[in-house]
């Protein structure tokens, strides 16, 4: 468990919780990323705050990596995505395209992702979110075991 980082995990988690708290108590909105980017189209008036939020999200990640480069990927180590497991005989771009497609489609149909269901939904004691979270965590764990991607 050499890679286990409980302190930065809890600190980062608290920041994510604070982000969700600010958006909820300030604007009454759920900080669910799939919902925020998934409702950019069709263009409505809410597009403005959604874009502002997403631009700030990217800017903060980049800035944090410059300020605290020692924390890992994006700082001292370049970020990289997975490669397709060789046993599956699929080129990596195709593998990532399928993963991206399923992530976008699944979070739209299931109405939420790790932040919307996981953080905001559970905090609201939503049974829907609890069920969704148990399902996508369970399926993801099985998928990692089956694909052997790491």
């Amino acid at each position: 468990m050499e890679s286990f980082t409980p302190l930065t995990a809890a600190l980062g988690g608290a920041l994510i919780g604070l982000a969700a708290a600010v958006l909820w108590l300030g604007n009454g909105r759920i900080a669910g990323i799939s919902g925020i980017f998934g409702q950019l189209l069709p263009p409505a008036q809410t597009v403005v705050w959604r874009v502002v939020f997403l631009v700030a999200l990217v800017a903060a990640t980049f800035a944090a990596a410059q300020l605290f480069p020692g924390l890992g990927v994006g700082g001292e180590a370049p970020a990289r995505l997975v490669e397709a497991p060789p046993a599956w005989g699929v080129p990596t771009p195709v593998w990532l395209a399928i993963a991206g497609l399923l992530t976008g489609l699944g979070t739209k149909i299931g109405n939420g992702c790790t932040s919307g269901h996981g953080v905001c939904g559970l905090a609201r004691l939503s049974l829907r979110s609890l069920v969704a979270m148990l399902v996508f965590f369970g399926v993801a764990i099985v998928t990692v075991a089956v694909t052997g991607v790491v």
Partner: peptide, 26 residues
């Protein structure tokens, strides 16, 4: 059904929507 599809995608790449967007920074 949506959670199942997302779970497969998440397990394949380890990227959920938040990190997907923030990785634009890198």
């Amino acid at each position: 059904g949506g959670a199942v599809l997302f779970g497969i995608g998440w397990g394949m790449a380890g990227i959920c929507p938040g990190p997907a967007i923030s990785l634009i920074g890198f």
